[in-house]
Each structure stands twice: as C-alpha cells, then as structure tokens.
C-alpha cells in the first residue's frame, strides 16, 4: 500500500538520523547540511512562492540555531525537534504577517537568492504541486486533525514520527487520523479517494 497518493511527490525520506543540533558553527553546519533538503521540502510543499520559501527556510534554521543550545535528546529525535520548529515558524508566518509587517527580519532569506536559485526553486515548487493541493484540500479539517494528517500524508512521516513532532502519543495520532478519515469521507468523497490508502495504513 503506497504511503502517498500516486500523483503526490514523495518527500525526502530520512535514511539516517540527523546529527543533533549544536549551537557552535561547526556543529550547526553539520546539522544544516543534513537537514537543508528536508526543510526546503517542508516549505515548498506549503508555499508556491520562491521568495517566501527562501524566507521560511532561513527563519526555520535561524530559529533552530537560536534554540540549539536547549535541544534535549530525551524529548525527541533531532528531526522531530526541527519539524516542530518548522511548524511554529510557518504558523507564525501566516498568523502574524499582517500585523507585524513593519518589523524588519534579521535574516531575509529571499535576499540570498540569485536567478539560478529562483529557477531551481520554481522547478522544485512545480514538482511539489500535488502535495500543496493535498494540504489545501485538508483545510476544512480542524487544526489538530489537519496537522496530523499533513505530517503523515504530505511530509511522509510515520504515525510514530508525527507523534514525536507534535508531542502527543501514538494512540492520539491514530485516533486523529481515523477521525480525519471519517470527516473527509463524510463530507468530501473526492478527498477520501486521495487519502484513503494512507489512512488505511493506520486503521
């Protein structure tokens, strides 16, 4: 049973555990190298604008750098910690953008782009179109259900990994996925068609 719908671009899979984040330059550089593609994938599956993708990527890594000293391996794997930061950055981006528009960011990612980068991002964004559509189709769900569903169907995390990212237990993830399936199935049959194979994995 495929984890993602046939037409969705599979996210990068982790072949090994990321190095723990460290606040020193060398330590963080290794962490950055291991996670750059995953973070870029996370943002390009959620925005279709190269400049916004660059800004979000930069913000996520700056947040990770600033929080690296507080990373506690007992509370989750590095990728779960980083996905948690990415989710917070993304949520703040959409929630606060209008009211904080005058605030100047310390590191505007889009100013680091050249034309070749933009072209590469555009191609990458095009390739992630199916995944973005999937997140848009989930928008009718409540936030707790949607965030679980998106981590599993869009980002390709296992229910166990999604539980770590969200700081909830696996039973709750399982229950939310089942509720999402029920809600999507009841109201939006076309969406169920796209997601049912994924949800069957955990039912």
């Amino acid at each position: 049973m495929p984890l993602l719908p046939r037409w969705a671009t599979p996210p990068e899979r982790r072949t090994r555990r990321a190095a723990p984040p460290r606040p020193d330059a060398a330590g963080f550089s290794a962490f950055y190298e291991e996670n750059f593609n995953a973070v870029l994938g996370f943002v390009t599956r959620r925005t279709s604008n190269p400049q916004v993708a660059a800004d979000l990527t930069a913000d996520i890594f700056v947040a990770a750098l600033e929080a690296a000293g507080q990373y506690d391996p007992k509370r989750g794997a590095p990728y779960a910690w980083l996905y948690g930061i990415a989710r917070n950055v993304l949520a703040s981006h959409y929630r606060g953008s209008a009211r904080e528009q005058q605030v100047v960011a310390r590191l505007n990612g889009h100013r680091l782009l050249d034309e070749e980068d933009i072209a590469a991002l555009e191609e990458r964004i095009d390739a992630q179109r199916a995944a973005r559509e999937l997140t848009q189709r989930h928008s009718a769900l409540s936030e707790p259900l949607r965030e679980v569903l998106d981590l599993v169907t869009v980002d390709g995390l296992t229910p166990r990994e999604a539980a770590q990212v969200l700081g909830i237990n696996r039973a709750t993830v399982r229950s939310r996925l089942l509720r999402a399936r029920r809600e999507l199935g009841a109201d939006r049959p076309s969406v169920l068609k796209d997601t049912e194979s994924i949800l069957e994995v955990v039912s």
Binding site: E12, A25, F28, S29, Y32, E33, F36, N37, L40, G41, A54, T57, A58, F61, V62, L65, L107, G109, L112, L113, D114, E116, D117, I118, A120, L121, E123, R124, A127
Partner: peptide
C-alpha cells in the same frame, strides 16, 4: 530534486 545551491551556501555562511 533541484537544489538552489547558491542560496544554500549563502544561508550556510550567514548561519555560520
């Protein structure tokens, strides 16, 4: 998957 290599390097420098 295409990688914006210039951006990646510049961001790495800024973070460093």
């Amino acid at each position: 998957m295409n990688t914006p290599t210039g951006f990646k390097q510049r961001l790495a420098s800024e973070l460093s």
